[in-house]
């Protein structure tokens, strides 16, 4: 079998059909590079799974109320300013061409076409 690179995570999670699971296991016995890949992926998986469970700061059975979206938005904007982040203004009446170029490019590159096959060009 060719290197089952895309199947390693599913193998690790026991998410392959039994036949595929066995085939990948078999391959791993003889392939040091896939075994090393698996080890790396497994380490990352362990780290993420080992992240602490965050406790909700409010009781889990809250007296239901409307979400505090507006308050949260304001507090994040304030936090963002505190660490020097730029917060996009809600109302933009000036069309900044660099921003538009970025938005256009972002959409162009997800589909095939003459610009995406040769690689996009930076800037406008």
């Amino acid at each position: 079998m060719t290197h089952p690179i895309d199947l390693l995570s599913a193998f690790l999670d026991g998410e392959l059909a039994p036949a595929d699971q066995a085939e990948v296991a078999n391959h791993l016995h003889g392939c040091a590079s896939c075994a090393a890949d698996l080890e790396g992926i497994s380490r990352v998986r362990d780290w993420i799974r080992g992240m602490p469970v965050e406790e909700a700061p409010i009781p889990l059975l809250p007296a239901l109320r409307q979400p505090r979206w507006a308050w949260a938005a304001a507090s994040i904007a304030a936090a963002a300013l505190a660490v020097g982040l730029v917060v996009t203004p809600a109302q933009t009446e000036v069309l900044d061409l660099d921003t538009l170029a970025g938005q256009h490019t972002a959409r162009v590159v997800v589909s095939p076409g003459i610009s995406s096959i040769r690689g996009p060009v930076v800037g406008r």
Binding site: E54, P62, P67
Partner: peptide, 15 residues
């Protein structure tokens, strides 16, 4: 990555 967003979202989901 943000506790305020997370608790708002949890409330919204429960609603």
């Amino acid at each position: 990555g943000n506790p305020d967003d997370a608790s708002d979202l949890m409330q919204e989901v429960l609603l």
